[in-house]
Computed example of a mutant assay.
Amino acid sequence: MVNNNNRACIVGIGETPYRRWGTVTEESEFSLACKAIMAAAEDAGLPLSEIDGFAAHSDDRNDPARLEVTLGIKQLRLASMVWGGGGGGACASLSNAVAAVENGSANYVVVLRALCQGQQFRYGQFHEWSAHQKFSSPYGLFSPPGQAAMTFRRYVHLYQLEEEQLARVPLACRANANRNPNAVMYNKPLDLETYLNGRMIAEPYRVYDCCLETDGACALIVTTRERAADLKGKPAHVLSVGQGGDGRWGTGNFGNYNMPDDIFSLGPQRGLANELFAKAGVNRDDVDVAQIYDAFSGSVFTTLEAFGFCGEGEAGAYIDDGNIDAGGSLPINTSGGLLSEAYVHGLNLLVEGVKQVRGISTSQVKDAKVCLVTAAPVTPSSATILGSEPN
């Protein structure tokens, strides 16, 4: 049993400006990573030299040895990377950091993701070196939208989802982004007519259903409640965090295409969700706001169902009732999400979750005390429940 003083919390957050991929810049991906870490340390009131651990996901290229030397860290005690690519590890890196500070392996752990597609490669393109893409390319699936669309097309068929219902997700995210000066789509409103006139990428996904491709970095600093008392950053308490996925579910481009029908369209998050709520000691009704991984609009529908906010096949009606909009019962992606703020493999959703429980979001939910943050609905997936107060 973890001593309450040793329970983990997030004490610092930092972001760089987000920009479309390929923007001409002299800044390297490593420079962006360092700037985000420095901003998080400043937010926490923590000297950079006191950082002693790093946790990252999605094959982040900014290795701890270089960061240690560059930032002047006195001692490196943790260097952790979540296996696999994509956004499934967006909260799993937090899980590794939490475990480290709670068991004494490290004192102040940075959770980091930096992405500079303009200088490296685009995730939305076909890559001949990818084993997954080599397997899928003979079937005409050359990019993530086509691969993701196949699964969600089954959902649309099963539950007769209307295109206007699907539109509610990107419209809600864009409205939030229009209030967020750091969002790539800050000054670009979106209405239903424009959405419906958007070009079809892979049925049922139009261009506005697909996440942005951006460059940028964000970072968080995790420590114990006891150490947080000596810092200036208002802590966001990690009520629970976990990673994993339901059995019978694979990974990669065809991760679910041989799955039984009962989980084919829903995804592998139900078991994870139940464990998280039990550990946090909160119910679904206690969640004031959620940051749901939205690389594609459809994942919001299946995640709402997998996490129990509505029944299977009921997300269309739930969203239609305005629940995910500002002022609804469960506002989502209040920074704009991956669809309209930036695509940083989901870590920016975690940063926004901290802002909500601190009360400083640009689309702040009144009296928000509990925030759910989810990663991509793949295997392994991950998620966390943050609170303004400890449990």
Score class of each variant (00 low, 15 high):
Val11Arg: 01
Val11Ser: 06
Ile13Thr: 12
Pro17Ile: 02
Arg20Lys: 10
Val24Tyr: 15
Glu27Ala: 15
Ser28Gln: 10
Ser28Asn: 11
Ala33Gln: 02
Ala36Trp: 00
Ala36Val: 07
Ala39Thr: 10
Ala40Tyr: 07
Glu50Gly: 06
Leu67His: 03
Thr70Pro: 05
Gly89Trp: 00
Ala90Phe: 02
Asn107Ala: 09
Asn107His: 13
Ala114Pro: 11
Cys116Tyr: 07
Gln119Ile: 09
Tyr123Ile: 15
Glu128Ser: 13
Ala131Tyr: 08
Lys134Phe: 15
Ala148Gly: 09
Thr151Glu: 15
Arg153Met: 07
Arg153Pro: 08
Arg154Met: 06
Leu166Pro: 00
Leu166Tyr: 00
Ala167Phe: 06
Asn178Phe: 09
Thr194His: 14
Tyr195Met: 06
Asn197Glu: 13
Ala202Phe: 01
Asp209Arg: 01
Asp209His: 05
Ala217Val: 05
Ile221Gly: 00
Thr224Phe: 12
Arg227Asn: 07
Leu231Pro: 06
Pro235Cys: 07
Gly242His: 03
Gly255Asp: 08
Ser265Gly: 04
Leu266Cys: 07
Asn274Trp: 10
Ala280His: 08
Thr303Leu: 01
Leu304Thr: 00
Phe307Trp: 09
Tyr318Lys: 02
Asp320Arg: 15
Asn323Gln: 12
Gly327Leu: 00
Ser335Gly: 03
Gly336Arg: 08
Leu338Asp: 05
Gly353Gln: 14
Gly387Cys: 06
Ser388Cys: 06
Asn391Tyr: 15
Asn391Arg: 11
